[in-house]
Amino acid sequence: MDLALQLLFTGIGIGAVYALVALGFVLIFRATNVVNFAQGEFSMVAAYLMVVAVEAGLPYWAAFIVALLGMALVGVVFNLGVYYPLRHRTYLPVIIATIGASILLANSVLAIYGPQPQVLEGWFETPGIQVGPVYLDSQYLLIIGVTICLVIFNFWFFEKTLLGKKLQATSQDKEMASLLGISVSTMIMITFIYSAVLGGLAGILVAPVLFVSIQMGSTIALKAFAATIIGGFGDVAGAIIGGLALGVIETFGAAYISVPYKDGFAFLVLIAFLIFRPQGIFGERVAEKA
């Protein structure tokens, strides 16, 4: 039981990371119908920005803001350079362009900053607390907390604010949105910025746990992508639940079935979902909305 509780905590922690990255996937997909294969690299770039800013002597919070602003800029450049020129083409060229962008981002960082993995200190001084039989890593606690806040924020933002509603309208029907006087290209730009910042946030939060390395983004992104599909593509709540579920499944699968095949569980669950429930956990609801 103690064992299971500890696994559950770690599973949720790692799942929350998947969920954050998955959220970025979902937002871009809803706005543009495109899967951004460079989403994981957003996380990696942000973590490096953070390391650079901290090393430059900025206080942690200031470095955090600088890194997120940097990510907003990455989002702008990414939209203008990768998505926007291809917006009238089918999904296939866009997928491949984002794959190219992911190679470009990862290796640019490698070229600039070298291959050494870096250490980024966590937000808290204490590494964690022992609650009964379970050790709670402080960084994972922070990640879980941030995820909860983001769920609430997203709900408020998309359902209650005008900008959020405009974004929703754009993602559901571009022609209709532009007839209503909404600038579709501005909305897409905002989406890319928001999604890059979200991905960056995930990267900065997870860096103290996983260290800062070139590969950190791609490993997380693939799982987050799986989480997105399990949650039902285009569903914000689904992405969160999917991410958490995946983290837990993976951790328990590793503990009780096989450690070396750990990465396989995510994909097996994914294939099972794709075959038996391709609409995802909350798929039904999405269909009704449409």
Binding site: A101, S102, I103, L104, L105, N107, S108, V109, P115
Partner: peptide, 11 residues
Amino acid sequence: GLYLAIYGLFV
């Protein structure tokens, strides 16, 4: 990383 970065750009 430089040449893989260029490769990505070319894609």
